[in-house]
Simulated scan of single mutants.
Amino acid sequence: MTKPRLRIGLIGTGFMGKAHVFGFTSAPRVFELAYDLDLHTVADITPEAAERARITLGFAKGTARWQDIIENPEIDLVSITAPNALHKEMSLAAIAAGKHVYCEKPLAPLASDALEMTLAAEAKGVQTQVGFNYLCNPMLQTAREMIRAGELGEIRGYRGIHCEDYMADANGSFTFRHDPAGGGALADIGSHALATAEFLCGPVTKVMGDCVTMIGERPDGRGGRKTVTVDDVGRAFLRFENGASGSIEGNWIATGRKMQHDFEVYGTKGALAFSQEHFNVLHYFDTSDRKGRQGFRRIEASPDHAPYGLFCVAAGHQIGFNDLKAIEVAGYINAIAGKSDEPFNFRAGLRIQTLVETIQSSSREQRWLDVK
């Protein structure tokens, strides 16, 4: 039976633009989707770049004007992987045109912008998605199931961290991420740590933040230097609604770290430990194990941890980063088809930006703040 077609326009072809394309092309081959997905038009900064992207990524058309994607009535879904400061303008234009919007995180530089985008999408009735694909890992799903089932008992403590080193070189150029509109390390990668904390342990109610700029200026690309005001490291102590306490860190100058998205959860009956650097493994400690036999055991990703089995029939062979994007895309397409709720919509993205801003305010004021 012929399926309806969902025609996609992509804005931006960097790392995350390619990841979105991998998701769009892999998801229909792994999952039974309600739509066939068409790569309709890709937009990049110049006509030459757009044409290269069209050929390389497999789109039917290319353009140097992102507005062409918005204005084209044939396009149903707009995928936005442009710099953070452009997310609001592009998303609002797509929403006004009645298109579904898949936007990379952070949703917007300011919570007030994210709120405007959220309300516009909800009023228009379009389906939205913010790119937090680490949450799609079957091991994180398993961890949440174990916590909710009470296997860890009462949750007492949480530690989360997202560290990389892509800004560790002090002679690295000033980028859009260093602009205040880009957000800094807490917004850029600490947002993942916050999303994971609430995914596993529920709402955060109070924060105490510490945001630090370690590299105060960078080359501007024109022979001069430019002042940096955003944080290189953002940390926060957390209090959860369930009574647990914890901490998170977002750090983009962590020398040697490439993808340390880790967490530890401590309960009265057990504990969990996880590292994105080995993200097909979850470590579990059970207090009921007899003395002399206690220790963290490895839970290997396998077909028993859906949807791992759709990618690989053998345990321990592992799935990868782009597979998580395919899982994210599949969940979003199901929401567009009305088969499920949006996995991580603009309102969820607004929540994360609210947490980020509350931590930033707490750091400036040097006191605990309630999350509103």
Results as ranks from 00 to 15, higher is better:
residue 303 P to R: 08
residue 267 G to P: 04
residue 198 E to K: 04
residue 185 A to P: 01
residue 22 F to P: 00
residue 10 L to N: 05
residue 357 E to A: 03
residue 67 Q to T: 13
residue 248 I to Q: 02
residue 216 G to R: 13
residue 162 H to A: 11
residue 249 E to A: 05
residue 370 D to E: 15
residue 168 A to W: 13
residue 318 Q to Y: 11
residue 177 R to C: 13
residue 42 V to R: 12
residue 336 I to L: 03
residue 240 F to P: 01
residue 324 L to F: 12
residue 154 E to H: 08
residue 119 L to V: 08
residue 125 G to Q: 10
residue 87 H to Q: 09
residue 12 G to R: 02
residue 322 N to G: 02
residue 225 R to F: 08
residue 106 P to M: 09
residue 299 I to H: 07
residue 60 A to R: 15
residue 274 F to C: 05
residue 68 D to T: 07
residue 314 A to E: 12
residue 56 T to M: 02
residue 123 A to C: 00
residue 75 I to S: 10
residue 22 F to I: 00
residue 240 F to D: 02
residue 180 P to H: 04
residue 138 P to V: 04
residue 285 F to H: 07
residue 208 M to N: 15
residue 65 R to H: 14
residue 143 A to F: 00
residue 12 G to H: 01
residue 84 N to G: 09
residue 57 L to R: 11
residue 15 F to P: 01
residue 270 G to A: 05
residue 88 K to A: 11
residue 323 D to T: 10
residue 197 A to I: 01
residue 227 T to H: 09
residue 128 T to C: 06
residue 205 T to V: 15
residue 204 V to T: 01
residue 344 F to Q: 06
residue 234 G to A: 09
residue 8 I to C: 15
residue 71 E to N: 15
residue 14 G to D: 06
residue 155 I to V: 15
residue 372 K to N: 11
residue 65 R to V: 00
residue 340 S to T: 13
residue 368 W to V: 11
residue 369 L to A: 03
residue 313 V to M: 06
residue 140 L to K: 00
residue 202 G to H: 06
residue 333 I to F: 12
residue 192 H to C: 06
residue 274 F to K: 03
residue 217 E to N: 11
residue 239 R to V: 08
residue 200 L to V: 10
residue 203 P to D: 10
residue 28 P to L: 05
residue 174 F to P: 02
residue 30 V to P: 01
residue 360 Q to A: 15
residue 277 E to S: 12
residue 155 I to Y: 08
residue 214 M to K: 14
residue 58 G to A: 09
residue 246 G to K: 06
residue 359 I to H: 01
residue 294 Q to S: 05
residue 236 A to M: 07
residue 250 G to R: 05
residue 266 Y to F: 13
residue 372 K to M: 10
residue 121 A to R: 04
residue 157 G to Y: 04
residue 26 S to N: 11
residue 321 F to V: 07
residue 224 G to L: 10
residue 178 H to V: 03
residue 160 G to V: 08
residue 15 F to L: 14
residue 149 A to E: 14
residue 310 L to E: 12
residue 106 P to A: 05
residue 293 R to S: 14
residue 143 A to M: 02
residue 43 A to T: 05
residue 76 D to G: 13
residue 23 G to S: 11
residue 147 I to N: 13
residue 175 T to K: 12
residue 252 W to M: 15
residue 331 G to Q: 13
residue 185 A to H: 03
residue 344 F to E: 01
residue 116 E to K: 06
residue 70 I to K: 08
residue 30 V to S: 04
residue 201 C to P: 07
residue 16 M to R: 10
residue 26 S to L: 14
residue 199 F to C: 03
residue 139 M to K: 04
residue 153 G to N: 12
residue 288 S to A: 15
residue 126 V to N: 05
residue 121 A to F: 01
residue 98 G to K: 00
residue 299 I to Q: 10
residue 196 T to P: 01
residue 42 V to P: 14
residue 304 D to S: 11
residue 207 V to A: 07
